[in-house]
Simulated assay, not measured.
Amino acid sequence: MKILVAIAFILILASLGSAFYHMMRQKNKADPRMARSLAMRVGFSILLFLCILAANYLGYIHPTGIR
């Protein structure tokens, strides 16, 4: 589960970097590659959130409080 979370986080950063690259290089007002990269980032973020919820439910991670 930890590897899946790490891969999802790396994919989030990669798609954010790709969107930034396309935003800086675009000559038109609307670049579909930038929009696609940002949409993928949202999808990866949702995947990461669901993985964390599943890990909590299955007992792989445990919530801790601040003492």
Rank of each mutant, 00 (worst) to 15 (best):
H62V: 13
G43M: 03
H22F: 09
I12D: 01
A19W: 00
G17V: 06
A55M: 15
T64N: 08
P63D: 06
R33I: 03
I66G: 05
Y21M: 06
I10T: 09
I7M: 11
R67L: 11
M24L: 10
I3Y: 12
I7Y: 13
A8M: 01
I61R: 04
V42W: 09
I12L: 05
A14Q: 03
A39M: 12
R33D: 07
Y57K: 15
S18Q: 06
L16V: 03
N28C: 07
N56A: 15
L58W: 11
I66M: 08
L16N: 01
Q26R: 09
M40Y: 15
A55Q: 07
P63V: 10
M1I: 05
F49L: 12
G59Q: 01
A54M: 13
R36H: 12
A19C: 05
Y21S: 05
A30V: 14
L38V: 11
N56V: 04
R25T: 15
P32C: 02
D31V: 02
M1R: 04
R67T: 07
H62G: 00
K2H: 09
Q26M: 08
F20V: 12
P63C: 03
K29G: 13
V42M: 12
F9W: 06
A30F: 14
N28H: 10
L38G: 00
L58R: 09
A55W: 03
M40I: 15
Y60I: 10
L50F: 13
I61E: 04
Q26E: 05
A6C: 04
I46E: 11
R67Q: 08
M23A: 08
L4K: 08
M40C: 14
I3A: 14
T64H: 07
C51P: 00
R33P: 00
A35D: 11
Y21Q: 05
V5E: 09
A39Y: 10
S15F: 11
A19P: 01
S18T: 10
D31M: 04
P63Y: 11
L4Q: 08
V42H: 09
S18D: 07
V42L: 14
K29P: 00
P32N: 03
I46K: 13
G17H: 04
L4M: 08
A8N: 03
M34V: 14
P32L: 05
M23R: 05
A6G: 00
L53T: 04
L47H: 07
A55V: 01
C51V: 10
R25E: 13
A8H: 01
A30I: 14
L13W: 02
M1N: 05
R25D: 10
R33T: 03
L16E: 01
I7D: 09
I3S: 13
S45I: 02
Y60R: 08
C51Y: 08
S45Q: 06
G65E: 12
I3T: 13
M23S: 08
P63T: 09
L11N: 05
L53K: 07
F9N: 09
V5Q: 10
I12G: 01
I52K: 05
S15E: 07
R41I: 01
A6M: 04
Y21W: 06
L16F: 03
M34C: 13
I3G: 04
I12A: 02
I3V: 12
A54D: 11
F49A: 13
K29Q: 11
A8S: 08
